[in-house]
């Protein structure tokens, strides 16, 4: 039997699904999922993504309504338009899910992420790090003679850019929260 000519990464949704996965461009979408904050709800959402082979680029979750026990899950995912539609439909049919919003298509939205950066160094590098932090409006939340911890909120792109600049200046550690997002206006 000759080698099977199947593209790497072919979707496994259907045994017959031999569509070229690259035939359509993939898009990044930010979804806001409002759920009952019941036991296992996060596992259910994450399990859906892993079980069906969807991507998670970023995930944040916290209870946003303490009396109603509602949590908001913000997930940044990637896929072709039809996969994105499937993800939303699959999320929508989970029993504890109240609402699914695709912030990427439902009008303008704001996205923010919080990050902490530990930068270790002395002399010129230390001064340069502090100067760049000021430009990026990062706050110093901890300092020793050999290090700073900067705190910054911004878009993921801004955080990436800052991390890039800090790398040669002694970036030792990064912690990021993942994206929180809301639609603009009312």
């Amino acid at each position: 039997m000759s080698a099977l000519n199947i593209k790497k990464g072919s979707s496994s949704h259907s045994a017959y699904d031999l569509r070229d996965p690259n035939a359509q461009v993939t898009e990044s979408h930010t979804l806001a999922v409002l759920v009952d904050n019941e036991a296992g709800v996060l596992a259910r959402v994450i399990g859906l993504f892993s079980g069906r082979g969807y991507n998670i680029d970023s995930l944040t979750v916290a209870e946003v309504d303490h009396t109603g026990h509602r949590s908001r899950i913000t997930v940044v995912t990637r896929g072709t338009p039809s996969v994105i539609e499937q993800i939303k439909a699959q999320l929508g049919r989970l029993v504890p899910v109240h609402e699914v919003h695709d912030l990427t298509v439902e009008g303008p939205s704001v996205e923010r992420e919080l990050a902490l950066f530990k930068v270790a160094g002395t002399g010129e590098k230390r001064i340069e790090a502090l100067r760049l932090a000021e430009i990026f409006r990062a706050n110093v939340v901890d300092s020793t003679l050999q290090s700073f911890v900067f705190e910054m909120t911004g878009t993921p792109a801004k955080i990436d850019a800052f991390a890039e600049l800090m790398r040669p200046l002694g970036l030792a550690d990064v912690a990021r929260t993942g994206v929180a997002a809301l639609a603009r206006g009312v």
Binding site: H13, D17, S82, E85, Q86, A89, Q90, G92, R93
Partner: peptide, 11 residues
């Protein structure tokens, strides 16, 4: 009755 069945495999 299941919205996720629609356009899952066939448009």
């Amino acid at each position: 009755i299941d919205p996720s069945s629609i356009n899952k495999v066939i448009h």
